[in-house]
Computed example of a mutant assay.
Amino acid sequence: SNRILTPSIMGFDSLFMLIQTVLIFAIGTVGRTQLGTYPLFLLELGLMVVFAAIMYRWLFTGSGLSLHLVLLIGIVFGTLFRGISSLLQRLLDPSEFMVLQDSMFASFTGVDSGLLQISVLIIAVATVPLVVMRRRFDVLSLGRDTSISLGINHTRTVTTVLIVCSVFVGVCTALVGPITFFGLIVANLAYALCRTFRHAWILPISVLLGVVALVGGQLILERVFAFDTALSIVIEFCGGLLFLFLLLRGSIK
């Protein structure tokens, strides 16, 4: 029921930067390189998923807890992670800080092909429970009390969905870097284009919109702007405008 649940608000971007900063602070750029691309990718993904799993399990095992509390705690964790990262970055050697800066912004052009194959496999496996539970999502959209009365285990289903979403977000963030508003744009465009709330239509349309946005945006940057700017900057700008528009219109409750 909440359309502003972005990775940045949940603290995933801040956690990703904290992992990068701690690694360089602890073992340096040489040690980070020796660690290897694949172990580093799996380490980042594992830490982000474990963080989400612990937080969701703690929040949804009690009574009277809502998604608003998840958002609030996500913001608190994000602020904490950014503060620790900022402190450690001030203690880094300037040359190591320059290497760290490359991880601060999303890059869609320098993705490792091997990591891309692993990411596709992980996402494909994580998509299976969503396909199986697609009809339950329609029931969940009726509200907690209604879905429970219709036989849905609300707590377990919502927790499963959020964990799967954390896998998606973790894979994308570890693969290309942190980006805040891309999911906000795609999700709200999918809801606007779909004249139905059936997730059997909303989910594939969201996927197609994401592909069109990334590939089309990269094509425009290449052919029109000659790579004078980064796609992530354009997405952040458009997403920020959409975020303000939704707030001012009163669509988010």
Rank of each mutant, 00 (worst) to 15 (best):
F197P: 08
L115P: 04
F197S: 15
L184G: 00
D112I: 13
P94C: 08
V167Y: 05
M17Y: 04
T79N: 07
I233A: 13
S85K: 08
G210Q: 13
A226M: 15
V76F: 10
E236Y: 02
S251F: 12
I122T: 03
L175H: 04
W201F: 15
A213C: 06
I185W: 02
M10R: 07
L72N: 03
F60P: 05
L87Y: 11
S107M: 10
V49H: 08
S166I: 11
G46V: 08
R195N: 14
S149E: 07
S232Y: 01
E236P: 00
I148P: 00
R90Q: 15
V111R: 11
L116C: 03
V186H: 00
D112P: 04
P94R: 14
V76G: 14
F25E: 03
L214G: 04
R57Q: 07
E236A: 09
V224L: 15
F237H: 01
I252S: 00
R32G: 08
T33L: 13
S119W: 04
L241W: 10
F181I: 00
Y191C: 04
G31C: 04
G151M: 10
V224A: 10
A126K: 05
L18R: 02
L209T: 10
T33E: 10
S232W: 05
T155M: 14
L18I: 08
R198I: 13
I84A: 08
L121K: 10
D102P: 04
T173L: 08
M55K: 06
I9W: 02
V234N: 00
V176H: 00
L247E: 04
M48E: 01
R249Y: 01
S95Q: 14
I252T: 02
L130Q: 09
L142K: 07
P129D: 06
T146N: 11
R32D: 06
S113D: 14
I122N: 04
G36K: 06
A174W: 05
S14G: 14
R134T: 15
F168K: 02
L203I: 15
S232T: 08
V120C: 07
T61W: 13
G74K: 04
F243H: 03
S206V: 12
N188A: 03
F225W: 09
L221C: 06
N188R: 01
S86C: 07
L88Q: 05
I24C: 06
V212D: 07
S251E: 07
A126L: 11
S166R: 06
L142Q: 07
G64Y: 08
V167E: 01
R134C: 08
L241M: 11
L142F: 05
R82C: 02
L219P: 00
N153G: 06
G151F: 09
S107D: 14
S86I: 11
L92D: 07
S107K: 11
L221V: 02
Q218W: 08
F51W: 14
I152H: 02
